[in-house]
C-alpha cells in the first residue's frame, strides 16, 4: 500500500525544490475530454502525457482536461500551447503521445503526422 508517509516524503521533496512558476508560463497541454473524446480514447492519451511528464521530470508543463470543440469525428484532440503558438493534434493515440512529447515538447518540432491540417483544411 502506498502509505501516507510516502506522500509526506513527496511533499517534503517538493517543498525543498525552489519553484518559480507563473500561472501561464511554460507549456500547456489540453486534452478534449467530453463524451466524444472519452469514447475515442482520450483518457489513455491524457494518462500517457501525465506518465511521460512524470518520467522525464519535465517542469513547467501542465496537462488539463477540457471540453469538446465540435470536431467530434477526429477526437482525441490535443492542443499544445506554447506562448503564442497553438498546435492542434487530432486522432492522437498513445503512441502519438510519445512522439508529441519527444519530438515536439522536448525537441521543439511539430509532429506533422497528427496535426489537424491533415484531416481538415
Amino acid at each position: 500500500m502506498k502509505s501516507l508517509d510516502d506522500l509526506k516524503r513527496i511533499r517534503d521533496a517538493a517543498q525543498n525544490k525552489v519553484q518559480m512558476r507563473g500561472k501561464n508560463d511554460g507549456t500547456r497541454i489540453l486534452v478534449g475530454m467530453a463524451t466524444c473524446g472519452i469514447s475515442a480514447g482520450a483518457r489513455p492519451v491524457m494518462n500517457k502525457f501525465v506518465e511521460k511528464i512524470a518520467e522525464y521530470n519535465l517542469d513547467k508543463i501542465t496537462v488539463t482536461p477540457v471540453g469538446c470543440i465540435g470536431e467530434c469525428a477526429i477526437e482525441p484532440i490535443v492542443e499544445v500551447l506554447q506562448g503564442e503558438d497553438r498546435t492542434t493534434y487530432c486522432r492522437v493515440t498513445v503512441e502519438g503521445v510519445e512522439r508529441i512529447v519527444n519530438e515536439h515538447i522536448i525537441g521543439g518540432k511539430v509532429v506533422l503526422d497528427y496535426v489537424i491540417g491533415k484531416y481538415r483544411l
Binding site: L7, K8, I10, V50, N57
Partner: peptide, 18 residues
C-alpha cells in the same frame, strides 16, 4: 490529501503518481 500536501499542488506529478 490536501491537508497533508500543505500547499503543494495536485499537479505535482509525483503526487499524481502516488
Amino acid at each position: 490529501i490536501r491537508k497533508i500536501l500543505d500547499g503543494i499542488p495536485f499537479t505535482n506529478y509525483d503526487v499524481i503518481m502516488w
